[in-house]
Amino acid sequence: MSAGFVVVVGAEHKAAERLCRLWLSEGWTVLASFTGEGGGEDRSRYEDFGGDSRKLHTIAIDPRDSESVQSLSELAASVMERIDMVVVAIDRRRETRLRDGMSCEDVLAMYEYNALAPLRTIEALLPLMEDGMKRLCFLSDVRGSFAAGHGSDYAGYGMSLAAKHMSVKIMSNSLGPRGYTFRILTLNGEREGFGLTEEAALRASRWLADFTDESLLKLENELAEPVPF
């Protein structure tokens, strides 16, 4: 399809930034929403994006707060005639070391950011998607896959991602019959730039926005390999 309208939540995420850059260069209208503590610093990274600056919109939100998330939806309604695709890249990670002062507060915070915030944002943006291409995308991490090992110091992080994957599955069950499709891009946070090289980012940007593929729900890594839950 030709360029459309995309909302990227968690735009401070390095991989999200790469994707936004690519979509902007292809003429998409991009609403980049920052959810981190970086504030202005995160936003300023987007200033040298080039391209048609009228097609780039930014907003900082607290994704744990429904009113704040509503302000994102209001901005989207004012700058986009519809939303074709939402990409949720929100990511909080802390180690959970069982024998070394594990913090349940951290574990709960990761759930709030990584699992609940995507639901909150989708819930708020859904009414604007009805006339669009109805694609919902989520960035995730290999440590949220049951099959992947080496996550033992990241129990809480992996748990929040498993919860997110479950929520995507439930959404796909209810929204699939209404034409929505779902993509989970599983990155490797241990690698430089989450393993998303220029080439991988290009492939990922096309995969996420390939509306000719009507499969309901797909998980892939940055190498375009399928990933099990």
Binding site: G158, A162, H165
Partner: peptide, 10 residues
């Protein structure tokens, strides 16, 4: 689902 993942990681 998170509990299952917690079990795997533990």
């Amino acid at each position: 689902a998170a509990l299952n993942m917690g079990a795997v990681r533990l």
